[in-house]
Design a binder for these strands. Sequence first.
DNA 1: TTGACAAGGTTCCATATGGAACTAGTAAGG
DNA 2: CCTTACTAGTTCCATATGGAACCTTGTCAA
Lengths: 171, 171
Amino acid sequence: MNDRFDDTAESHVATPKEILDKVLLYPNIDRDGLRLSLWSGFYTGPVFAQIEQRFGLYRDENNVLFALATYGQLTAKSICEFLGRPKNSISRAIDRLLKKGLIHTEVDPGDRRRVLLTIEPAGRDLHEQTLKIHKEREAHMLRSLTPVERTALDSILSKLIDDADSWIETF
Amino acid sequence: MNDRFDDTAESHVATPKEILDKVLLYPNIDRDGLRLSLWSGFYTGPVFAQIEQRFGLYRDENNVLFALATYGQLTAKSICEFLGRPKNSISRAIDRLLKKGLIHTEVDPGDRRRVLLTIEPAGRDLHEQTLKIHKEREAHMLRSLTPVERTALDSILSKLIDDADSWIETF
DNA sequence: TTGACAAGGTTCCATATGGAACTAGTAAGG
DNA sequence: CCTTACTAGTTCCATATGGAACCTTGTCAA
């Protein structure tokens, strides 16, 4: 006789992969957008968590530093537009980087409203450290692709970047 | 004679595309990771801004609703793992969705620590609205790809998703 | 049977975040 | 030259966010 309080029906808890597989079968969703943003979330999330833990840099600070290291001197406004971030968030990041001696600023003589931002050697050193974390995570998350597939991905991403003027916008 | 205070050298302000093009030429950066995360940032950013403005849903609420609409009944823990979000953030999102009558909960009889979440008809209606926003933004941001390139992208993303167990993890 | 430990989710609270307001500077037109 | 409109960036402040602590429930070894 069954004990009426006995509950042997074990609830199955879905794993993320199981959820993802079923979700992707749902009709008419943004399959590409979903997969791309999920991949990116699990790419940047761990990377920025590690950078914050090891170097005390928040996401916006890291990204500002990255832009200055790889592009060169920029204004705050340009960085806002490039990263798609609110101007006070970028202003705050710049302030923190200044306090840490990782960048320096000068007023643009051509327009004294603008601040020109330049990376310092200490900032460049830090950027090289954080870039390693990015590269490792990228290699891990793209490890399943063959060289031919990497080339195909590169080709597609280049195509999307060529059209960037149509989707890089403030919001 | 030049006026020594006259500054006719007009500072060029770089556009986001110009910045991106130069950044991508920098040696040894995470080119794929950068482009993927930049694309996704400009995909999800405007989408969630619009959803928040029109429906009063924050990002986590929308994502919880999406998971419940497309997968079906889930626990909070499973949603945390799937979305890569802190458990108190998901807890808060669930609470807000409950208050709005968009989902309902029941205690899992198999394990009374767990809460089983189910979408309500009102939640499903809202999900259909927000999904349109996703689809429109996805179509716009992938418009430069040919059907053949869309197929190639789908193939690559499927490959990455097949390996999702290796990169969907808590952080 | 009991105690230690872990799991699932909630609550706390210090700090981060971002929309709006603000300030200083620039440009165009009358 | 003055006024108006706009730009670039800073500051304010209400609210969002997330790590840690906590509570309840479940598991397991001694």
